[in-house]
Nucleic acid binder design. Structure first.
Lengths: 155, 155
DNA sequence: TTCAATCTTTACTTTACGAGTCGAGATTGG
DNA sequence: CCAATCTCGACTCGTAAAGTAAAGATTGAA
């Protein structure tokens, strides 16, 4: 049920780009993202390249090069990002919209597990599709301005 | 974000036991579960053994042997099962209640991703904890009595 | 024009885990 | 005693995750 490290890194890298986003074509260097988010630089290169092929980011080469979002942060949802780097959001593929696969159970149409998993998927997707990078950036701003709020939960 | 095949098999095996559950100590053979659910028998052995160590099922050996639930189906939740065979329900461990692990991000208390993921986890957990094996069995019964209902969704 | 900082691309490594399979042993009812 | 069952540990086999590495292509600036 977990996101891979790669997926986490992708989200964190995009968050940096979202917070830095401007209408002009200013870019952020890999190295800076890497430093800010403790992501191995070499690994991050791969991930950003992948995000580029997904048309989520674009890059500028050369000495003043770097990456930037290809669209405004409010138009990039978590669902889109995760679907690209991780695959299905659904807990089992037989309830996935975008990555459906038949499962081995005797009768899919009468499977109560599938039934429940479909509900779970729906609530995951609802969250992920309704949250954009802009929302994340906004939250980040708030969290910074309310340092150590008592609302933080304990494990 | 996906359940492993092993986890799926565990759920399906337990569903069989739940539907067959009786107060007396009647058991179901591995072979029967395997056949009903298309699960490789040898692999299923492993899984049931694991569920036994989790005290979810108990077994009887010998010629009339087999498995049965150790508790009534209404007292076994999906959350409990999945947590045992799969680990955390949370999409990232830094928001997991039962399997918390620190993540590599610069400041966990101000991470907006964590913030959102915590909400996602909460809705996953809500579903999983409120659904018992008895609920599944009940749903299965209904799905059987309404064959090919038009409500089935298309991929 | 040359240099150095950046991205690009491809390939490689290493480790772990998922998904089984196998074989020999221990119980038990008939 | 025997045959059907569970038990337990070891083993395989493939794939994927998480990086590392190296050489090349662009670009801005000195």
């Amino acid at each position: 049920m977990k996101l891979s490290v790669r997926g986490e890194y992708a989200l964190r890298a995009l968050l940096v780009l979202a917070r830095d986003y401007q209408e002009d074509d200013s870019v952020v260097r890999i190295q800076e993202i890497s430093r800010k988010q403790n992501i191995p630089k070499r690994f991050l290169e791969q991930i950003l390249n992948d995000l580029k092929s997904a048309r989520l980011v674009e890059s500028k080469r050369g000495v003043a090069g770097g990456y930037r979002l290809r669209r405004a942060p409010q138009h990039i949802t978590l669902a889109e990002i995760i679907r690209h780097v991780e695959g299905p959001l659904a807990p089992v593929s037989c309830v996935s919209e975008k990555f459906y696969e038949k499962c081995s159970c005797p009768d899919e149409t009468r499977c109560p597990i599938r039934d429940v998993m479909k509900e779970v998927r729906d609530s995951i997707v609802a969250h992920m599709e309704h949250t954009s990078l802009a929302d994340l950036a906004e939250r980040a701003r708030k969290l910074e301005h309310e340092p150590m709020s008592g609302a933080d939960f304990v494990i």
